[in-house]
Amino acid sequence: MMRPIATTRSATGIPTGRLAVWWVIASEIVIFGGLLGGYLLHRFGHPEWATAAAHTNTMAGGFNTFVLLTSSLSAVLAHAAAEKGEGPKAAKYLGLTMLGGLVFLIVKSFEWTYEISHGYTITANTFWSFYYTAAGLHGFHVIAGMVIMGFVAADAMKNRELQRVELIGIYWHFVDLVWIFLFPLLYIAK
């Protein structure tokens, strides 16, 4: 597929791919902002939800934060390797990042099955509705990030499209950022 000349131009000084990813991040900020804003408004409005929130598993959330922070580290190491042109090394680090995402999802699935089996389903009360919707939307973004990272890693293995390693890295750091705010909101506000 012959890439248009338009992509090669950079009047703003930012390479086209990265400029596009910044706009993706900006539109994601307002999406998560809307959801977490609604959640926060309700939490301040309903202090009694703290009793429901008490049943969230802080340790699992904490461990997941550790997992995502580590995967962010490997994502940025992948970017550093890609900058030096070492495609296969970048692909290895991207693989580690995806592994981190997988561990995150596995821990989350155990966590959710425990909570659902104890009756805290999405329709239990509105706290749990927000809990599953926010964590679910974040989980969806983790899965989407891992899928794209798979493609980027496949290309990086053959030393092709290395600039995309940085782009998927930025997206991954954003997903980690959302979790950094989601963790205290859902798990610590008890």
Binding site: E48, W49, A50, T51, A52, A54, H55, T56, N57, T58, M59, A60, H118, G119, Y120, A124, N125, F127, W128, K190
Partner: peptide
């Protein structure tokens, strides 16, 4: 509520706090 949150909490006697 303040029982340690993870694992140890045995099933709540009443239904989850505010399921109306």
């Amino acid at each position: 509520a303040h029982a340690p949150a993870d694992g140890a909490g045995h099933p709540e006697a009443s239904a989850p706090a505010a399921a109306t």
